[in-house]
Write a protein that binds this DNA or RNA. Sequence first.
DNA 1: AAAACACTAAACCTTTTGGTTGACAGTTGA
DNA 2: TCAACTGTCAACCAAAAGGTTTAGTGTTTT
Lengths: 116, 116
Amino acid sequence: MVAQQPGLDDVFHALAHPARREMLRQLSRGERNLTELAEPLDMSFPAASKHVRVLERARLVRRRVEGRSHICRIEGEPMAKAVEWMEAFRRIWEPNFARLDALLDELKQEPETGDR
Amino acid sequence: MVAQQPGLDDVFHALAHPARREMLRQLSRGERNLTELAEPLDMSFPAASKHVRVLERARLVRRRVEGRSHICRIEGEPMAKAVEWMEAFRRIWEPNFARLDALLDELKQEPETGDR
DNA sequence: AAAACACTAAACCTTTTGGTTGACAGTTGA
DNA sequence: TCAACTGTCAACCAAAAGGTTTAGTGTTTT
């Protein structure tokens, strides 16, 4: 028994590059087009475009085309699945787990933040 | 601003391969030596050994040598850190987040499972 | 002492990743 | 219309990932 969800491969791989995590951070503030995602990234535009496709392959990001602009938004489910997988190890890092749990409670209280 | 914790690169990369996730699953049940970790993995022993080193580089696994046997155990902190990073996106996948939260509550009740 | 065991190291290979540049295509604003 | 804008595609490259086999080191068992 070695094969698990093949989706996890793509999700974790997508999260493993700082440029892609930075893109997700931007997208957590609201929708962005490719130019906006690429701008802070110290690499060529085509390189950034490839990173977006990696995020799409992992289904962490969805894209819609609006005129000449390709607008991206986060899709939450795959990341939630990944977190669920990681939770299986709670017995090992129980102290940290408790800390995370407290963090979750704290965050739940916060008011909703609107789109930019 | 592109650079974040470099540790996350290694952790997510380590999690991106099914063989390494399978190893972690084994280790969540208790300590294992390399032979035990490699056994269910349909690859050569040296290949499996390399995967263990990837887990060590990410500090997800620690190793101690006991005679001719190298015994591995999970180290929880890096995975907790990774989960914390992912929680930053809760606003996006709030429905799934609620589901996760319920899961956490449920798991907290369960009795502790001992080592094998 | 010798064999079996647990593991590392090195050499090698193929595929994937992550980046570049240059050319092109569709859309929009002047 | 035409230039600027937004993005893709293809060709190319270097480095990393993931695997193999063969050989070697140290430990334990018989």
